[in-house]
Design a protein around this nucleic acid. Structure first.
Lengths: 251, 251
DNA sequence: TTTGCATTCTTTGTACACAAACGCATAATC
DNA sequence: GATTATGCGTTTGTGTACAAAGAATGCAAA
């Protein structure tokens, strides 16, 4: 029942090689991934004690992971009232998308100049995995990989502050998709991703930026940020006010 | 005895209820301000116990404040080796300035559209205080207010992710100025700030952006990022390799 | 039935104690 | 004499106990 995460029970202290070693990194990554894959719905309460129980660590570690997520606006940390998965409003969603367009444009231009052959190869590999995930029906993994693609592209641009900002924006975008995605859920982003890499590899900055902007348009068009009228949406809109957690189903 | 945190000895304002915000907010703000005003030099070690002693709180609070500062790349958190004030390299400085140009451009355009009369009035007040600080020789407060001006302008733009990013960039810029400012230290930024507000208030986006870009150029030109030859700079360059914290090596 | 208040109970906030890791210094060996 | 091994001291990392702040619930009164 409460032992789904057995592998984590043991103290994972392989810190010499620096392979995502510390415990709070692991906890952070797991919660982050759960949100990215939409296994944790917006508004879900994240109890420190419960998470500590699940991951087999004390509240200290959980608290640090939540703090980090809060700094990326992925969870909301309310004083004396605990943490919940953030529920971006329509206005917040618009702001995130505005910033993303700005950042993606800069990243694309920089990537054309700085991306190495190895990085482009890794990007292609990620797109293949993304495509495979969607084709075998694993939508959660697909969305996560799609986000990681944009993060990886930021790394290829070679600008550390942009990478940090992009991480935050990608996470929030995933939340927004979880909250506002319309019926048409055909995530064909991998095709656009591949074309984008082609343009970058060809050194065609203008074409690459154009493709990226269209890609942003497509993501945007899949959301219904304009309406927000149906009862379901109302529920989502007010979820940050609800006391009761959505009780995320454990896989 | 190695008292590395001498500069902080003075503000022992360990009031528990007086100031706004929680304790870790107060600690964060004080350290942040000390760095912004360059009372804490890059490379200075930030001992948890010493800071706890100074502020009259436990290491838990200090740790959280340092974690927050680390997330903004203002301090560097080395595992098992404590925190130091970050020492941006020339390359990191270039990346920060690239991002700042991008963000400031967007902020300026948005501010022309969204800034309210009240916000512009507050901005003017900040510029006046900045000018007064410089004119009475308080260079530290002047630099801090100059940074806060850019942060306030970001808030006037009305885009939350941009504000968050800008906060990180402004802090890092201050660090960079502390590390790389050339002999010509005439910070006449307040004049440019005032012209900028005029253009924004007039609704002249093109002029406002142009002024902002020139302002960025001026800040950039005051630094000697190209040379990095003096012994002081060499020291900064290798500070991340040094085991021993060279506290207060600033001349 | 509904509303206001008080008590209780759960959850978070803070401090502290203990354990582990790192750096430095000393010493021993080649 | 130089270099490496080892022990010690200091600093950080983690767990846990206790305190405080909300939230929920029950009771009483309108």
């Amino acid at each position: 029942m409460n032992e789904q995460l057995q592998p984590l029970k043991k103290p994972v202290r392989a810190n010499k090689a620096g392979r995502s070693g510390t415990q709070d990194d692991i906890v952070y990554a797991h919660i982050f991934e759960a949100i990215l894959e939409q296994r944790l719905a917006p508004g879900t309460k994240l109890s420190e004690e419960a998470l500590g129980e699940i991951f087999g660590v004390s509240r200290t570690i959980i608290r640090r992971a939540l703090s980090r997520l809060a700094h990326e606006s992925v969870v909301l940390l309310r004083p004396n009232r605990g943490a919940v998965v953030a529920s971006p409003s329509v206005e917040e969603a618009r702001q995130v998308f505005f910033s993303r367009r700005m950042v993606e444009r800069a990243i694309t231009e920089l990537a054309v100049q700085h991306a190495t052959a190895e990085q482009l190869s890794e990007l292609r590999q990620m797109v293949r995995e993304e495509r495979d995930s969607f084709s075998r029906g694993d939508r959660g993994a697909g969305i996560r990989l799609s986000g990681e693609f944009h993060l990886k592209l930021a790394e290829a641009a070679g600008n550390a502050p942009l990478v940090s900002f992009q991480r935050s924006l990608v996470s929030q975008t995933s939340l927004i998709i979880a909250q506002y995605e319309s019926g048409n859920r055909s995530h064909c982003s991998y095709d656009e991703h591949m074309q984008l890499i082609d343009a970058i590899e060809a050194g065609d900055a203008q074409q690459a930026v154009s493709l990226m902007m269209h890609h942003m348009d497509h993501i945007d068009s899949k959301l219904n940020l304009d309406e927000e009228s149906a009862s379901d949406d109302l529920h989502a809109v007010f979820s940050h006010l609800l006391k009761k957690p959505k009780a995320a189903a454990k896989g």
